[in-house]
Design a protein around this nucleic acid. Structure first.
Lengths: 229, 229
DNA sequence: CCAAAAGTGTTCAGCTTACACCCATGA
DNA sequence: TCATGGGTGTAAGCTGAACACTTTTGG
């Protein structure tokens, strides 16, 4: 095949992942200690270069899997960063993705290979390049998204309690909610299934466990419903 | 400087622009007839390749200016399309941007160089590659954005009437609004300045002209206000 | 004088918010 | 028995939606 574009410039393209996790209390971010130049030894988002015959979404999945061992994770493209000087070593475009994982089933062993560790958003170290900007953008996206879709559930274990869910939303929005109003609202969507079990880790009384009911949610959006917090 | 990345792949990166315009009645899209292979003679978004030492946003501005002669236009990155086979001629990433222009001061002469012409969204021709997908995404973004920021004003001339503004919103959302409610709501934001002039093009009675008051809007968002339609 | 678009208020329903006490349990 | 977090209902204010008639003026 003729290369119609052969006179055009070619560019390095990286994919960087903003990985959010929730430990039951606070919203956290998975960062790695960079083990190559430039910026070796500094904190950074997990990333990698886009390969010759690899789709962007695939690259993001690959990179996420390398670090966490997880597949089939919520992953969404955020924005592409293309300032000429953003990487001091060379002109590199970076396509940012953000991911939501629940920390319970994540592979600590893999993460150790990259010196990955979790940080509270309030206690983030300094990041290389424009990564802090990416994180900020991702937080905003997460807030917006969580208003329109129940993506918060990606961050929780399969069974969770309403106090846990509320803590998650409080962490995402960095504000307190009234528990009566919160329960009323969430239950009114009819996308939660209450189970017979209680989780007693949080209190002596124990809190009922719930499951997210994806079927009901599908039906709900098919009927033109819009999830709003 | 050492090229730490020299073993990594490099890629062609294009920038494609979804250009919305409003002619006072309907929301339109500016498309060009492609004059190079592949896809020569087919309808397409205006685009171009990212140059060696050019930032992404700059590239988008350059491309927009080439076609419309306009500078300082609302322009926002949408998403990057990176499927391996999206362009049949070569592996090309495309960073999509969308722009809002008011058609009154746009340079038809320049547009003719590219065989550019306006299409109603309902009468769009078939587009090359994944451009239709980009347009669809841009429409959704425009709707969302117009709810939270008064970007609609980018699409209007500096002075406009409330009926015009309402028509614009009706075009963006593809639905009718009640004019009493619409006026009440928009005026309640206090970001419009009524002028002493009337525009008589639309009716014998004439409609008062308004101007968008950017100062008041800045103050409004500083005070934590959220613009909602 | 009439056609055509501009302009104008009120009511009702539903949603959001604020708010305080009892319950169950393990230690 | 008590400390701790879990669970529950109601009232007030606000916002969004529905709805119809009068005004202006060029032809």
């Amino acid at each position: 095949m003729a290369d119609y574009y052969k006179d055009e410039a070619k560019h390095y393209v990286a994919v960087d992942c903003i990985i959010f996790g929730f430990d039951g209390n606070r919203l956290k971010l998975l960062l790695i200690k960079r083990n190559f130049e430039p910026g070796k030894g500094q904190w950074s988002l997990m990333g990698g270069f886009l390969k010759e015959n690899e789709g962007l979404d695939n690259a993001a999945q690959r990179i996420l899997e390398q670090l966490t061992g997880l597949q089939d994770i919520f992953l969404e493209q955020l924005l592409t960063y293309g300032e000429v000087d953003r990487d001091p070593a060379a002109r590199v475009l970076s396509v940012a993705y953000y991911a939501l994982i629940n920390t319970s089933n994540f592979d600590e062993f893999k993460a150790k290979n990259y010196k990955g560790s979790w940080f509270e958003l309030t206690e983030m170290p300094e990041l290389i390049f424009d990564h802090a900007e990416m994180v900020d953008k991702a937080r905003k996206r997460l807030r917006r998204k969580a208003k329109n879709q129940p993506i918060g559930f990606e961050l929780l274990p399969q069974k969770f309690t309403l106090p846990q869910l509320m803590k998650l939303y409080e962490a995402i929005y960095d504000q307190k909610f009234d528990k009566r109003n919160f329960r009323k609202k969430l239950l009114s969507y009819n996308i939660l299934k209450m189970l017979d079990e209680k989780d007693k880790k949080g209190s002596r009384k124990g809190a009922f466990l719930y499951q997210f009911d994806a079927d009901k949610y599908e039906k709900m959006i098919l009927n033109g419903f819009s999830f709003e917090l």
